[in-house]
Design a protein around this nucleic acid. Structure first.
Lengths: 144, 144
DNA sequence: CTCAAAACTTAGATTATGTCTAATTTGATA
DNA sequence: TATCAAATTAGACATAATCTAAGTTTTGAG
């Protein structure tokens, strides 16, 4: 995705394409590794320190509200973000908190009986366990 | 579930049944509404102030590690807890953060190809949208 | 173009949530 | 009862995220 595409993405969602907001979105598009807000802030400021921490959080919130970015909460750790590209599920490592994408598959929808008055927007599967890096160390150590 | 059953549950998992730990577990068994740690602390201390905040957090962590309690992370809000009774999925309200149980159904397992070296422990579906209380207000208001 | 309003950004204070420390208490068991 | 590991405690500390109030930029009406 090039710069123009990102600009169109933002403006198509009613968000102005400011330097700071563009930087956050572009970083997320290029880095699929589910960075935290702190990592995003540090990365976009490393070479071009023109965005404050508050703005990074503001823009992440705006992007999530616009539906361009997904926020993944992880028990006991900072939230992680990814650009909503292809649909996918998530694998969360019990040990290191790493979030990884898992191949998309359809999710069984709840019957309207069990849904009641709720309005469903999306369904996602969370797989939990040990990531490829942590799995080998598992045999001898209690998962903490 | 009576007091003896809770005691057996704790001791069966290698945890001593202390007054404070029992209070946390009993509260979770009786209150299926996914309370936060702060709510649990406040509730178990309202009439019988014998547990500190640190102990409440320690015990919640112990219970989660022992597999007796589940922790549910919610984007932008405090973690919520529930006693692992029947298996169920979760519905999280976009607007108010409320966590509700959804009927259990089997989750499609990822093929061993897409799983790679990862070790899978559990799968859960997260349904997102508006809860029954928030849905009616939706038409006129942007979901904040 | 000009001006005012709206959108956006900012630094730093503040809040919310959760963890750690060091001292003390509890309780199982020898 | 004496011992010692487990559990608890108060409060300091850490971290993540939000808020505030002021300043800056962009937009659009006139």
């Amino acid at each position: 995705m090039d710069g123009e595409a990102i600009k169109r993405l933002l403006e198509g969602s009613g968000l102005r394409c400011t330097a700071q907001r563009y930087a956050v979105m572009a970083f997320l598009v290029e880095h699929a590794g589910h960075p935290t807000a702190a990592e995003i802030f540090e990365a976009v400021n490393r070479l071009d320190p023109r965005s404050s921490r508050a703005t990074t959080y503001n823009n992440l919130r705006d992007l999530v509200q616009a539906g361009l970015v997904r926020e993944v909460a992880v028990e006991g750790r900072a939230a992680r973000f990814d650009a909503k590209g292809m649909r996918h599920h998530h694998f969360i490592c019990d040990r290191c908190g790493e979030v990884e994408d898992m191949e998309w598959c359809d999710v069984p929808r709840p019957g309207s009986g069990s849904l009641g008055k709720r309005v469903l927007r999306e369904c996602e599967i969370i797989f939990r366990g040990l990531c490829a890096k942590c799995a080998p160390r598992h045999a001898s150590r209690k998962v903490s």
